[in-house]
Design a protein around this nucleic acid. Structure first.
Lengths: 161, 161
DNA sequence: AAATTGGTTCTGTTGTTTCAGAACCAAACG
DNA sequence: CGTTTGGTTCTGAAACAACAGAACCAATTT
């Protein structure tokens, strides 16, 4: 039935907007977030350029740039079918996982930065602050290590031997 | 010696810029990041409005707005001294810790979002993708839980009984 | 009460980001 | 060869964010 199909499309459309905002907040341009959200929700889970463009009602350049960034981040890739020049873009779940891990591992930076601060401050006589900063540094280190361990454990469980 | 003092100031200045970029990348305006970095490095570790303004060579409004955002995020607070109208701004280490925890806990959002996607896709017949997405969701959930546990453990160790 | 101090808030400029539209280009097709 | 297809890259407009400068305001000080 056509109305049911339309209902679904409208539901997807609103979900895409909602999720798009989320991905936007993790550093992407609005349209980039929406492309990612659409690829998560479209059925089948791969979509050609013009389907994306049509669904999002955006310009070719906007869609092209969004796909380029998502691809270069490893979040999206594409498949092709013989006798068909189109690329069918889709979520790259492995790349996404790697990306998530990479972002988590980047947490160590704050720890390093804090160590530098502590080194700079070490001959200041303001020991209370030094101790408090140290607490933050220790927390940060504790968490980085813990997260690293969680990731390693997960990897161990999920390697195909 | 004056040159040594100047050297230190220049070293701090360059560290402030470098760290400022880091904090900027976690979502703050450039000047906001630099204010935070300066408060981490200045000695004593509290500084009045005009010292901050002078060091960063920025406008009053910029400094004021930066301090407002940092304060409202709980990352900075201030102390006062009797007979002195000025506020002395400083890093709020406890607030900072809370803020870090809060940000880490916000990781659950992606998991919830993915659950929603999976629910939407459940009657699609594309099981491979469904399984792959599920892996991401499980990973995300596993990590959220793990991090939550790490934080709880840390809190337990660091509560003053 | 007038002036100073320690900021805050408003206004406008400048720089940056996001995107649409058009030009472009390489591969495939006729 | 010229044309279509599936995009990519360039150009410019509009919206937005960051900030300087000035006006402002509530306490204090004179």
């Amino acid at each position: 039935m056509i109305t049911d199909e339309g209902d679904r499309t409208e539901r997807i459309r609103s979900k895409v907007e909602q999720m798009g905002v989320f991905f936007e907040r993790s550093g992407f341009a609005p349209i980039t977030g929406r492309v990612f959200a659409y690829l998560l929700l479209c059925d089948p889970p791969h979509s050609d350029f013009f389907a994306i463009q049509g669904f999002l009602r955006a310009s070719k350049s906007a869609v092209s740039n969004a796909l380029t960034t998502l691809t270069s981040e490893g979040l999206v890739d594409y498949i092709t079918f013989s006798g068909n020049r189109r690329r069918y873009f889709r979520i790259n779940t492995n790349g996404w996982l790697d990306n998530l891990k990479k972002r988590l591992r980047r947490m160590t930076v704050l720890g390093e930065l804090l160590d530098e601060v502590l080194r700079e401050r070490c001959n200041s006589n303001c020991s209370t602050f030094h101790r408090d900063l140290n607490t933050v540094a220790v927390f940060q280190n504790y968490l980085s290590k813990g997260i690293e361990q969680l990731i390693d454990e997960w990897d161990k469980k999920n390697t195909t031997n």
